[in-house]
Simulated assay, not measured.
Amino acid sequence: MDAVSAFSLTSLGWLSAQALPLIVWPSFVASLLVDEVPIPPAAVYFARALGIAQLALALQSLLLSGLLPLHAADDTAAASPYAWAVLFLSTMYHGAAAFYSYGCYYYRVQTSVSAYAVGCAGSSALAAFGLWCLLFGGGSHISRRTGADKRTSGFPFTNSAAEKRKVR
């Protein structure tokens, strides 16, 4: 399993853990956030809509990353061309969710709202994992013969020791 698939599965798990209570028991989740005794129907509607949207985002990133193929299985199929775009958008989503959760926790820390801290920790971990996948998850570009990274260049520094060994 490559890094993009691992990120997609982890993101699916985190978003599902957030979405299922919103879909199954929205009045309980809304009662944690609203001080009114009768929960407004709009709060229940928006809780369920948010849960469904989170599940849709998770399943869409799972499908577009190429982990679940949309076509018949054959050995000649290449990786999904949308995998990096989905990885980038999911990373930006988790980063924004972490930033928002941290802001809510920071400004409401005196009321002891620990759910924001848990949400911030989970989203921050996924944002960091997604950033790592974007930077280093593209596979290995190490030469089997020399052991050097094929993607490096000499700009702005040159390898003078290697140039001295070259015979011109």
Rank of each mutant, 00 (worst) to 15 (best):
Asp2Tyr: 06
Val4Phe: 11
Ser5Gln: 13
Ala6Cys: 12
Ala6Thr: 09
Phe7Thr: 01
Phe7Ser: 01
Ser8Val: 08
Leu9Met: 14
Leu9Cys: 14
Thr10Val: 08
Ser11Trp: 01
Ser11Met: 04
Ser11Gln: 03
Leu12Ile: 00
Gly13Gln: 03
Gly13Asp: 01
Trp14Ile: 10
Trp14His: 10
Trp14Ala: 14
Leu15Ser: 01
Ser16Arg: 00
Ser16Asp: 02
Ser16Phe: 03
Ala17Leu: 15
Gln18Arg: 11
Gln18Lys: 11
Gln18Val: 13
Ala19Ser: 02
Ala19His: 00
Ala19Lys: 00
Leu20Cys: 11
Leu20Ile: 15
Ile23Ala: 08
Ile23Lys: 07
Val24Ile: 14
Trp25Met: 13
Pro26Tyr: 02
Pro26Glu: 05
Ser27Pro: 05
Ser27Gln: 13
Phe28Gly: 09
Phe28Asn: 09
Val29His: 07
Val29Leu: 15
Ala30Gly: 06
Ser31Ala: 15
Ser31Cys: 08
Ser31Met: 09
Leu32Trp: 07
Leu32Ile: 04
Leu33Phe: 07
Val34Asn: 11
Val34Ile: 14
Glu36Tyr: 05
Val37Gln: 13
Val37Asn: 11
Val37Met: 10
Val37His: 09
Ile39Phe: 08
Ile39Pro: 12
Pro40Gln: 06
Pro41Glu: 08
Ala42Met: 13
Ala43Leu: 14
Ala43Phe: 13
Ala43Lys: 09
Val44Lys: 10
Val44Gly: 07
Val44Ser: 11
Tyr45Asp: 09
Arg48Val: 14
Arg48Gly: 04
Leu50Lys: 09
Gly51Arg: 03
Leu57Pro: 00
Leu59Ala: 06
Leu59Cys: 08
Leu62Gly: 01
Leu63Gln: 01
Leu64Val: 03
Gly66Gln: 01
Leu67Lys: 04
Leu68Gln: 09
Pro69Leu: 10
Pro69His: 07
Leu70Ile: 08
Asp74Ala: 15
Asp75His: 11
Ala77Phe: 06
Ala77Glu: 13
Ala78Val: 05
Ala79Pro: 03
Pro81His: 03
Tyr82Lys: 06
Ala83Arg: 11
Ala85Glu: 08
Ala85Met: 11
Ala85Pro: 04
Ala85Leu: 14
Val86Ala: 15
Leu87Asp: 00
Leu87Asn: 01
Leu87Pro: 01
Phe88Ile: 06
Phe88Met: 10
Phe88Gly: 10
Leu89Asp: 04
Ser90Arg: 06
Ser90Asn: 14
Thr91Gln: 03
